[in-house]
Simulated scan of single mutants.
Amino acid sequence: MVQTVFNAARRTTLDRMAIGLSALCVAHCIASAVLLALLSSAGALVDSHFHEIGLMLAILLGALALGRGVMRHGLMLPASIGALGLGIMAGALTLPHDLDGMLWSNEVVWTLIGVALVALGHDLNRRAVS
């Protein structure tokens, strides 16, 4: 019994890490939008390399955790929702992130939608594995 609980917790570690990365992304998006609305000199927080590296980490964790989940429980829904979210996040990188007096840009809105879908996919995957 104890070994089964330990194995279930270990199997969901990647999903938990990915959900944590999603939370960091949300915090970054909100903080960047607020800071950019207040200070035009805060542009270093939205450097495109930072976003590209974050997306690469999200894709790597998503492929590992969601792919592993499909192999374990055979359900495609969590992986499909996560992949849709990653695609939306990738598409959001192509949008301009200048605010032009707005608090939220289209890039921020689409990124947050993508992040929410990725987190949902990982949560569904974690629940299906445990």
Score class of each variant (00 low, 15 high):
Met1Ala: 14
Thr4Arg: 09
Asn7Leu: 04
Ala8Cys: 05
Ala9Cys: 07
Thr13Phe: 10
Arg16Leu: 15
Arg16Tyr: 12
Ala23Pro: 00
Ala23Ser: 08
Leu24Tyr: 07
His28Ile: 06
Cys29Gln: 11
Ile30Met: 13
Ser32Gln: 05
Leu35Asn: 09
Leu36Gln: 12
Ser40Trp: 11
Gly43Val: 14
Ala44Val: 10
Leu45Gln: 13
Ser48Cys: 03
His49Gly: 14
Glu52Trp: 05
Glu52Gln: 10
Ile59Cys: 09
Gly62Leu: 04
Leu64Ile: 14
Leu64Pro: 01
Gly67Arg: 00
Gly67Thr: 01
Arg68Trp: 14
Gly69Trp: 08
Val70Asn: 00
Met71Ala: 15
Met71Phe: 15
Arg72Thr: 13
His73Trp: 13
Leu75Asp: 08
Met76Tyr: 05
Leu77Ile: 03
Pro78Lys: 06
Pro78Glu: 05
Ala79Glu: 00
Leu84Thr: 08
Gly87Leu: 02
Met89Gly: 03
Ala90Val: 01
Ala92Val: 06
Ala92Ile: 00
Thr94Leu: 14
Asp98Ala: 14
Leu99Ile: 11
Gly101Glu: 08
Trp104Ser: 13
Ser105Phe: 11
Glu107Gln: 14
Val108Gly: 02
Val108Arg: 08
Val109Asn: 03
Val109His: 08
Trp110Thr: 15
Ile113His: 05
Ile113Asn: 12
Ile113Glu: 12
Val115Cys: 06
Ala119Tyr: 03
Gly121Val: 04
His122Ser: 08
Arg126Pro: 02
Arg126Gly: 08
Ala128Asn: 07
Ala128Ser: 14
Val129Ser: 11
Val129His: 06
